[in-house]
Design a protein around this nucleic acid. Sequence first.
DNA 1: TGTACATCAGTGAACGCGCGTTCACTGATGTAC
DNA 2: TGTACATCAGTGAACGCGCGTTCACTGATGTAC
Lengths: 189, 189
Amino acid sequence: MTGTRGYHHGDLRRVLLAAAVRVIEESGPAALSLRDLARRAGVSHAAPAHHFGDKSGLLTALATEGYRLLAEALHAAGGDLLDRGVAYVGFAVDHRAHFEVMFRPDLYRCDAHELVAARQRAGDALHSGVAALPEGRPTAQDPQGDALAAWSIVHGFATLWLSGALPPRVGDDPRAAARDVIHRLFPRP
Amino acid sequence: MTGTRGYHHGDLRRVLLAAAVRVIEESGPAALSLRDLARRAGVSHAAPAHHFGDKSGLLTALATEGYRLLAEALHAAGGDLLDRGVAYVGFAVDHRAHFEVMFRPDLYRCDAHELVAARQRAGDALHSGVAALPEGRPTAQDPQGDALAAWSIVHGFATLWLSGALPPRVGDDPRAAARDVIHRLFPRP
DNA sequence: TGTACATCAGTGAACGCGCGTTCACTGATGTAC
DNA sequence: TGTACATCAGTGAACGCGCGTTCACTGATGTAC
């Protein structure tokens, strides 16, 4: 809050996570170092270890936060599958650092309790959208197959968008472009 | 060929690239170091610089090789879009190190001449599959939209598969699972 | 209201490590004559 | 067939750097009495 701070930072954990997001957005997770984060937070280089133990502890916290944010975003999008798909892409674009770390299980501890729970909740939100598809569709007898196809197409679009591999023709509105792509998988009558 | 080698290695460039593939498959591109590659090749640590200049030079060569292999794989799959999609996923699974580097443009020099050419050829192979779709389809008036959707769904499936995010239920045959997923995007009459 | 004490967050010096890069060198190979 | 020379691939010692980790410490905060 105030410019000067005392011996105790007060909010260091949150500040370190925010700094990590900034670093990853700029240079990717490989460029992350605890010393650099401490420098950015204006704190001694040994301080981060107090909160996260080590680097993979910090990334575990970041991935957990990411799964929570994703679950929230999916729920906020409502029950329609198309909207949920767009929300998935929107999450990836708005939180690219979280998104990138979440799908790099080698970077963090995948079996951490809080992380497992958050991931489960996000997965449920993903699947319950497919259950809401109109009945009488050709593939209605295999909703899990539909869920996998839906996940693939939104995840692929988001990944390609973030890597900058898409041609300029696609435009600069990821949500609109994603909506069109998803619509081809689940056409409306 | 023989166990002993003289002062000159003879095939160091190729051996270094192969070692890089192994390292990336084991630990990801972040774990790559020129000194480690030299060690694995049984060569002094300064030798790699002779062939690649620096690390991003080596990764540029690796990405270029990747785009060449992808273009080959797509052409070898024939003209059918479904088969090309399956081939894309097969390439990603069989050459995960190449695949991973190719879509991390921050790791290499994207404007290198050979790389640009190879990427162009792979992109053409991807698009010409969509052109071969049967006419009279609902979205036939927008083949570029179809191409983007197809690319998204195969890229997403491949990425999810490689990251280990897919549930066990999907099985252990990525090509078969990919075929089913792509089929939902382009159903056969 | 005041004092004593436990707890916790952050400090700063020290360590060893692997890395990339540089540079003068040396051994092997090929070519010209 | 032999010699001289240019070229190139690989060597090995040296450098400085940023990193993670450890550890005894110190300052701030909260609680018990």
